[in-house]
């Protein structure tokens, strides 16, 4: 079984995938990034062995990212199984069959974004490209700001589940050494002073 953890956004998600990539279980919390991660994983695993752990490495929420990535790393190290980093925006983009603008929460009204065929970026709601509908887990206020700026949010019912999207991204993702797991920031660390 492969465990996938994404606590990088305004919602937190865990999924358990079978070796063939089919989803054995998934849970998406509607609230903030910090939830009973260890309990959630324990209940979902039901003691089933893990062959690898995949974690969303951002860009995204400051606190959430650290909680999920370090828990996933500790779990992988403890079980001696590989750790696989997954870019947060790639997971959101993979939820749609059509080209979309993947977004994730950057705080202070800003969002990280990834448009098809472009580089990821950081922008205010009004600066986002509007050629594509947007997919991503944002705080309600941020999502309202996007909509007010003219961005169209893709209808949730037309999207793949988190687990199914993560399975797609995992197909091309590579494991890394335990000491090579890097969080993706796009903001200068100096801004945290």
């Amino acid at each position: 079984m492969i465990l996938v953890i994404d606590t990088s956004s305004a919602r937190s998600a865990i999924a358990l995938l079978r070796p063939d990539g089919s989803v054995a279980g998934e849970q998406v919390s509607q609230s903030g990034p910090v939830f009973g991660l260890a309990d959630g994983v324990r209940v979902m695993r039901e003691g089933r062995p893990l062959s690898r752990v995949a974690v969303a490495t951002g860009p995204g929420s400051f606190t959430g990212l650290r909680v999920g990535v370090s828990f996933g790393l500790g779990l992988a190290m403890g079980l001696k199984v590989p750790i696989v980093p997954l870019p947060t925006l790639a997971i959101q983009a993979a939820r749609s069959e059509e080209p979309v603008l993947a977004v994730s929460e950057a705080g202070r009204g800003r969002v990280y974004h990834l448009a098809p065929g472009r580089e990821a970026g950081l922008a205010e709601a009004g600066e986002l490209p509007q050629e594509w509908p947007a997919v991503g887990w944002l705080r309600p206020a941020t999502q309202e700001a996007l909509i007010a700026a003219g961005v169209r949010m893709q209808d949730e019912s037309r999207l793949r589940t988190f687990g199914a999207a993560a399975a797609l991204v995992l197909k091309t993702a590579r494991e890394v050494a335990y000491d090579s797991l890097r969080l993706e920031y796009m903001q200068s660390f100096a801004s945290k002073f």
Binding site: A38, V41, G68, V69, S70, G74, M77, G78, L79
Partner: peptide, 11 residues
Amino acid sequence: GTGIAEGLSAA
């Protein structure tokens, strides 16, 4: 630190 500890504790 606490995150890695939580992961090890679970493992």
